[in-house]
Simulated scan of single mutants.
Amino acid sequence: MSVADLPKVELHLHHEGAAPPAFIKQLAHEKNVDLSKIFDANGGYAFRDFVHFLSTYEDATSVLTGPEEFARLTTAILEESAKNGVVYTESFISPDFCGGGDVGAWREYLAAIQEAANAAEAKHGITLRGVVTAVRHFGADKSKTTAHCAAETAGDFVTGFGMGGDEGQFTQGTFSYAFDQAKEAGLQLTTHAGEFGGPESVWDAIKDLNVERIGHGVRSLEDPALVKELVARQITLEVCPGSNVVLGLFPDFASHPIQKLRDAGVKVTVSTDDPPFFHTTMRREYEELSRAFGWDASDFAELNQTALDAAFCDADTKAKVAKRLEQV
């Protein structure tokens, strides 16, 4: 069995960002919406840089206007993930795109997503959990509304709270109220940092938001003291190598710091971020990492165990997923 065929755990996947281009094109056709500008000549998503990527992302989500579309989207995402051997995934889902922050509407969207996820688990053997996500560049007030939605629906399916978006907008501490609100509701915490923001953004995430995981975090390697802090606190990084390469943080997989972070004792995991945007899959991530660093099945087994330990789900779910990982 090649490493690409191994069962996998993924912790960093944006729900809307995992929408296949063909799926968004079909929805746009059904709604008679012209989204031609967001696609390239090959039918993929087109963007120039990170800020333009965010714009393209939000344009793509514009045709996702109701619970039924999100149910269809969830089915499409989980079918694709299952094809790539993923047996457990957590996706970032934002009430901003699911009802505009209204709790009642958010519950309807969430019910549709859960129903589709349950059907996918029965059919494909893949488990989904939701990490409710604030959008950083939408500001602090919006994040409080998002946290309220998260707190009101915390439970077996909604198990975490996080933040994505433009790291150049505001500071981590700007959102401390929302993160405190989510934590009080029993949700586990993560936030994007150390991607386009430097090591200081990771320090801020740790000190101001008290998170258990960091989305990306790859620029932590620039600060040896921070690396030691991540090890001491046992904070897990949700690393997305393919995303980092496409967005220009590193020229190729061989230049990516995941190996050095791992060697330093930092807990690292592997995810795809927004796979169709970055022309990647979990199979490709495994293949490229194996090619770049010589990782074999035992390396990926260790990474998956790290991911499962850090997953925002209960012990029974972890035990179920652990059995799937053993089926090699």
Rank of each mutant, 00 (worst) to 15 (best):
T190M: 00
S94D: 00
P21H: 03
T89E: 10
D223Q: 11
K37I: 08
A41P: 04
R324D: 04
L64I: 12
G198V: 03
A232N: 15
A82C: 06
F293S: 11
Q327L: 11
L221D: 03
G101W: 01
Y45P: 10
E79S: 14
A147D: 00
V33M: 12
D223F: 09
K267M: 10
L64C: 11
V86A: 08
V135I: 15
H124W: 15
F277L: 11
K144F: 02
G155N: 07
D316Q: 13
D166P: 08
K228Y: 07
T146F: 02
T190K: 00
Q169W: 10
T74G: 09
G101H: 04
D34Y: 10
A322E: 12
S220T: 12
S298V: 10
A310F: 03
L6Y: 01
V266G: 05
G242S: 15
F161R: 01
V211W: 02
H12Q: 10
I126E: 04
L230Y: 06
V227D: 01
V245W: 12
G17C: 06
D49A: 08
A134N: 03
I113R: 10
L78M: 15
V135F: 10
E238K: 06
P199G: 06
K31C: 08
T146H: 01
E184P: 00
T146L: 04
A182I: 07
P7A: 05
T127D: 07
F196H: 13
H52Y: 11
L325P: 07
T190H: 01
A120T: 06
K228V: 08
V86P: 14
L78W: 09
K37T: 13
W295V: 10
P199A: 08
E108V: 00
E30W: 05
L325A: 02
A178G: 00
T159E: 00
G104P: 06
D180I: 00
N32P: 05
G173N: 04
D156E: 14
A82P: 11
V211T: 15
P276R: 06
G168A: 12
V9K: 03
M163H: 07
W106V: 02
E222Q: 14
V268P: 02
G101I: 05
F161M: 01
